[in-house]
Amino acid sequence: MLGTVSGRHKSPHRGSSVEFAEYRKYVPGDDTRRLDWRAYARSDRFYIKEFEAETNLRAYIVIDSSGSMGFSAGDRMSKLDYAKRIASSLAYLTLQGGDAIGLSRCAESGTVNLPARRNPSHLEVILDLLENTKSEGPASLPDTLHELAEKVRQRALIIIISDFFYPPNELRDALLHLRFNKHDIAAFHLLDPQEIAFEFDRPQRFVDLEGSEVVIADPNTIADRYKSALSGFLEATRRNCMDSKSDYHRVLTDQPYDEVLADFLTARLPKKR
């Protein structure tokens, strides 16, 4: 992880830590002080000895607060509430590790950005913003991601928590933009189980959470088409995430969020030597 101060995370840069990384051939311009003379004695070739540099983590959480994130079926928490818990937990863990955490909220009114800070008191600011976040209206996650990609110059971990109910091609462009700027991306794709099952006992009057659209339909008659469309969307979203080498996690809101977090964190451990 690229950081401005040394920390506990591996840095993509070779640095001066004690952790040996590899040998590489000397090329003109290299610091001759880093030549391994012993290797020269053995092989009569110049090798530069490289070491792992350990830096701090800079992470940004992007939370989607569009209207669709407010959906919840029955007594389950809404996708937004679920997202808030994941975001607050990650913020806490990041700050506890001495790393910097920032927050971007994607809303109808525009994007609200909190810059990444390492200060423990920054947690309170993040939690305040999360608490005041309501789901309403249409929003544009791709725009927020594009904006973030431009704003964050240093490589960072971008954690996106959203239902990704956006046109997949727009989302793809945004993810690739982030990836192009060398950011590490993790995506939590939140879905309510009802949105997957689409089971109702009688015709419903569906009111759009993000607009004024109203549809009266008998779910039994359109379930197949609905699921077909949803399946296509899920596949496209996953492919977009894979293409942008994102760490993609599809999450149903009836899953315990602590398990989801544990899986996420555990999955990232293998990168550590």
């Binding site: 669709s68 959906f71 569906f206 959470l209 339909a217 379930a223 088409r225 609905y226």
Partner: peptide, 16 residues
């Protein structure tokens, strides 16, 4: 009809 606020409207509209 029972009214339900629905998030995944894009698929519903498509199916409908």
């Amino acid at each position: 009809h029972r009214t339900i606020k629905w998030g995944a409207m894009m698929f519903l509209l498509q199916a409908n």
